[in-house]
């Protein structure tokens, strides 16, 4: 078996579009999180829904900012 070249798990050319896509989804979910927080009263708010929305938003924002860093040339 010959030595196998190693490349990145995601093609480098996709980084900018992935960053835009994931950051915009993340920001939309963040917006829906805050809309839900502002429109529902304290009594009928469900903690599980808040946490699930927050987790969704943070996953998209986290990976989105990683791809933004990679696309701008900060290879972590």
């Amino acid at each position: 078996m010959a030595p196998k070249p190693i490349s990145s798990p995601v093609p480098v050319a996709w980084y900018p579009s992935l960053a835009v896509l994931m950051l915009s989804i993340g920001l939309l979910v963040t917006a829906s999180f805050f809309i839900y927080e502002a429109t529902s009263s304290r009594r009928n708010r469900s903690l599980s829904k808040e946490i699930v929305t927050g987790a969704m938003a943070s996953i998209f924002l986290g990976f989105g900012s990683l791809f933004l860093l990679l696309a701008t040339g900060v290879y972590v």
Binding site: E37, E50, G54, S58, L61, S65
Partner: peptide
């Protein structure tokens, strides 16, 4: 290669901490 996920998970947990702080403040 699993160590490659350390950086994105760090970013994810930082953002998640912000959301947890928001939830806690509103509760």
């Amino acid at each position: 290669p699993i160590f490659m996920l350390a950086e994105p998970l760090m970013l994810v947990s930082a953002v998640f901490l912000f959301f947890v702080a928001c939830i806690a403040y509103l509760h």
